[in-house]
Amino acid sequence: MSRHDPETETTTGVADAAADVRNGVMRLARRLRAERDPGELTLGRLAVLGRLERDGPATTSALAVAERVTPQSMARIVQHLISAGLAERAPDPDDRRAAIVRITDAGREQVQQDRQRREAWLARAMSELSDVERDLLVLAARLLDRLADS
């Protein structure tokens, strides 16, 4: 005789839901990437510019921790952004031995243009949803944001 185990069913249900969420998020991320112009910055470089725009100046090591990459990888990304005129190095006001990286006006414009292009596509796609579906999607986005911070 088989025994009914509600805990196993709950665990399986959560695992199935997690797979559905992962699949949906991954497909949306790929679709948003497809809205980028070819030849633009890599996603890693764009992520660093976005972080500098959002959070303000930071050291290369702080950026590496925040973006979960090695300090060496971040140093290469930062150097590319500086060479392209999208970021600049300045002395750290709290520690003159260190340097901070900050976004330039050109970098800010690059981030904003990229964001606007992708958000325009998303707004067009969302306009096909019902009001209830859009409200649910906004709630889901907030929940995904919370999960990302956990």
Rank of each mutant, 00 (worst) to 15 (best):
R102E: 01
R76V: 07
A66R: 13
Q116L: 06
D55N: 11
E109F: 02
R108S: 03
A120T: 13
E67Q: 06
R22K: 10
R51C: 02
G107P: 05
M26K: 10
H4F: 03
A106R: 09
M26L: 15
G56S: 09
N23P: 10
A18P: 00
L139S: 12
V25K: 06
G13F: 04
I103M: 00
A75W: 07
V14H: 03
T70F: 08
G24M: 00
D149H: 15
A29H: 12
A15S: 11
D5M: 09
V25S: 06
T8R: 11
V65N: 15
A62M: 03
A123I: 11
V69A: 01
A47I: 06
S150Y: 11
P6H: 10
M74R: 04
V69G: 00
R142L: 13
S127P: 01
R36D: 03
A66D: 15
A98P: 06
L122A: 12
R102V: 02
R3G: 06
A15P: 06
Q113K: 10
T11F: 08
E88A: 13
R3I: 10
A99R: 13
E133V: 08
A29I: 10
H4G: 02
T10L: 13
R45D: 03
A62Y: 02
G107A: 11
Q72M: 12
A64G: 04
T70L: 09
I82C: 05
G107H: 00
P71M: 02
L52Q: 01
D95M: 08
W121I: 14
A141T: 14
A66S: 15
S83W: 02
E40S: 12
V101Y: 00
L52H: 01
R31S: 15
R31W: 11
R68Y: 00
L129Q: 05
A87Q: 09
A90P: 03
L143C: 10
T11D: 14
E119L: 10
R102Q: 06
G50D: 05
S73N: 14
E109A: 08
R124M: 14
S61K: 07
Q72C: 08
L137W: 13
A140T: 10
V132K: 04
V101N: 01
L28W: 01
R76I: 03
P91T: 09
Q112H: 14
A125M: 15
V25E: 08
T60E: 14
L49I: 11
A15C: 08
T8W: 08
E35N: 11
D37H: 04
P6S: 12
V25D: 05
L144S: 12
V138I: 15
I103S: 00
V78G: 11
R108E: 01
I103Y: 00
E7I: 13
E53P: 03
P71T: 09
A47M: 07
D95L: 10
P91E: 05
R3W: 08
L49P: 05
T12S: 08
L139G: 15
P57C: 07
L122K: 06
V48F: 02
V138T: 14
A106V: 04
L86K: 02
N23L: 15
P57K: 05
D131F: 04
E53N: 07
L147Q: 11
S73I: 09
A15E: 06
A66M: 10
T104L: 02
P91K: 04
R3V: 10
D5T: 05
Q110T: 07
W121P: 15
M74Q: 13
M1Q: 13
L86R: 02
R124K: 14
D131Y: 07
P6T: 08
